[in-house]
């Protein structure tokens, strides 16, 4: 049921030309996938996806639309046939690839044999906190998380460098707006 809702949302994103609706549908898509994460036992991930995807990402995209335009032009030069062919071939290759993937929900899958049992059994004594996701995130895989925090930090610097400063005049015949310059952004 959730899966079919996700597919419908994704198809609607392809069809619609109104970017405002597209961004809103993306928020719905994130919320649906968050509920799917709860079904799949990943409560931490669901939490993050709901707050990030349905909340902050939608606000950022709406902010971009407010700064640019909210209407997509009808594609004239783009022929849909070649992209469709590429997508179909890629999808067929991926579906062929799934024939080697172990079945969904099987406890004997290779992914469940390597480090996961050790984390689940020993983290209570070694780390002493109940949430295994937190202990793996911050302690066992501390290097990863440090790196990812640094990526977020770098992305913020990039955004601030790109659009954080005072606005310069566009090349087209837009009048200058000196009274609205930000002195500090």
């Amino acid at each position: 049921m959730l899966l079919s809702l996700l597919v419908v949302t994704a198809l609607a994103v392809i069809r619609l030309r109104d970017l405002f609706a597209v961004v809103m549908l993306f928020g719905i898509y994130s919320l649906l996938s968050a509920s799917l994460f709860v079904v799949l036992d990943a409560v931490d991930v669901a939490f993050t996806e709901a707050s990030v995807g349905a909340g902050v990402a939608t606000v950022f995209m709406l902010g971009t639309l407010a700064l640019t335009t909210s209407r997509e032009k009808t594609p004239g030069a783009h022929k849909p046939l070649l992209p469709l062919l590429v997508v179909l071939v890629t999808g067929a290759a991926l579906i062929y690839g799934t024939s080697d993937i172990p079945h969904y929900g099987d406890p004997g899958n290779p992914i469940h044999q390597h480090v996961a049992p050790r984390y689940l059994e020993d983290s209570a004594e070694e780390i002493g906190i109940p949430n295994v996701v937190s202990s793996v995130l911050a302690s066992y895989r501390g290097y990863d998380t440090l790196g990812e925090t640094t990526v977020v930090f770098t992305a913020a610097i990039g955004v601030l460098l790109l659009i954080g400063g005072a606005r310069r005049r566009r090349r087209s015949e837009e009048p200058p707006r000196p009274d609205r310059e930000e002195e500090d952004a």
Binding site: V45, E49, V52, A57, V133
Partner: peptide, 26 residues
């Protein structure tokens, strides 16, 4: 218990994803 390792991976990937998306939007 379900496997926690993919959860950790994806948890951080979501936040990194929004950061890079914001960079793209900028």
């Amino acid at each position: 218990y379900s496997n926690p390792v993919p959860h950790v991976l994806i948890l951080t990937a979501i936040v990194v994803g929004i950061a890079t998306t914001a960079l793209g939007l900028a």
